[in-house]
């Protein structure tokens, strides 16, 4: 990280306890200026608490949050150069869309003409120009989401916080908004901190991801690092399909470590007895379950030395009928050693 330029946000041994519950447990990490940083984890893992600590809605029990190198201890939300897109959007129901977007500018007493111009530019950026006079109740979920984004971005904050902003949208709209959010972030160049429990969202948009579990960070890294090289069993299981072998089942695989994970799409489903290349591992078993998923098929393979591995294959030739006919078939699983991620025992 650049030494001269302070990080957009820094956590220094930050804890937030609610009685006995440690929502955030001694966290230290840095988020670089201009980064798209995702905080990924199941509900109750502490990711939203971290977001609220940055926004200033919560104060840490101990430790320190810094924004652009300045300590935020005791600084209220309205004095922080940070804006939030709320999970429920939190649009003011008694104001029109334009008034909602202009709220921050109105509070900072920006002249009316400039306010109107900036509001209109922002509404255009989120593809809502000319609809500023409507009330939030007259908008669809996707439109409300865009207004919430525009209302936060119009203030040109140093950091934009997004609290599961796509959670309430349907799948198609969610995928479309993922593309748009990433494009907007590149365009404005603001640091985005994105809270989500959806691994797909985190993988597709982020520069870096922090995986949260029980108030602690399990791993921080680029999306491909998180996916290909999960540092812990929790990350391997939460991001993508859990495919972990340990104990006797792992020991039976020649050349593999004592405990490891392997992504299901990296495994080749081969005929029994097929020769194994020198750089690869193999295991024999029988197909115990078949799930036809349209574009791909998910096979559960029971290994003859114990344990089970999931294999996902693209359906080039396979049909639902031919796939389910393979149930009980003996197979050999082959994968490259390089794709193995060793697990901490």
């Amino acid at each position: 990280m650049d030494e001269k330029k302070p990080s957009a946000v820094s956590f220094r041994s930050v804890s937030r306890h609610y009685g006995e519950v440690r929502a955030a447990d001694s966290l230290s990490f840095d988020i670089a200026e201009g980064e798209f940083f995702s905080m990924l984890g199941p509900s109750g893992s502490g990711k939203t608490t971290c977001l609220r600590l940055i926004a200033g809605f919560e104060q840490p029990t101990s430790g320190e949050v810094l924004i652009r190198g300045v300590s935020m201890a005791g600084v209220p939300p309205y004095e922080r150069d940070v804006n939030t897109v709320f999970q429920d959007y939190a649009l003011f129901p008694h104001m029109s869309m334009a008034e909602n977007v202009a709220y921050g500018l109105m509070i900072r007493k920006i002249p009316k003409a400039e306010r109107a111009a900036r509001t209109e530019t922002m509404l255009a950026m989120v593809a809502l120009s000319g609809m500023g006079q409507r009330k939030p109740s007259q908008l669809s979920g996707g439109q409300r989401q865009r207004v919430a984004l525009a209302r936060a971005l119009v203030n040109q904050p140093g950091v934009l916080l997004l609290d599961e902003p796509l959670g309430a949208l349907d799948l198609k709209l969610r995928e479309q908004m993922q593309v748009e959010l990433k494009a907007i972030q590149r365009q404005v160049g603001i640091t985005f901190i994105y809270v989500t429990h959806d691994q797909g969202e985190a993988l597709s948009m982020s520069d870096r991801i922090a995986v949260f579990n029980k108030g602690r960070i399990e791993q921080i890294g680029r999306p491909d690092e998180i996916y290909e090289h999960p540092a812990t069993a929790f990350v391997a299981g939460f991001v993508g399909v859990s495919n972990i072998l340990s104990g006797p089942a792992a020991a039976a695989v020649a050349g593999a470590p004592a405990a490891f994970s392997i992504r299901p799409e990296k495994i080749l489903l081969a005929a029994p007895g097929r020769p194994v290349p020198a750089d690869s591992c193999s295991a024999d078993g029988t197909i115990a379950s078949v799930l036809y998923l349209g574009a791909s098929t998910r096979f559960g393979v029971a290994l003859s030395k114990g344990g089970e591995l999931i294999v996902i294959e693209q359906n080039r030739e396979e049909t639902a009928v031919s796939a389910s006919a393979r149930q009980g078939q003996p197979v050999r699983l082959i994968w490259q050693r390089a794709h193995i991620q060793e697990m901490r025992p």
Partner: peptide
Amino acid sequence: SLIEASADLGAHPRQTFRNVILPL
């Protein structure tokens, strides 16, 4: 969340009261 949103957008408690809480 409406009160938090108002503070987040820079409004002091007094401004939040006048612009958000009282009208609602």
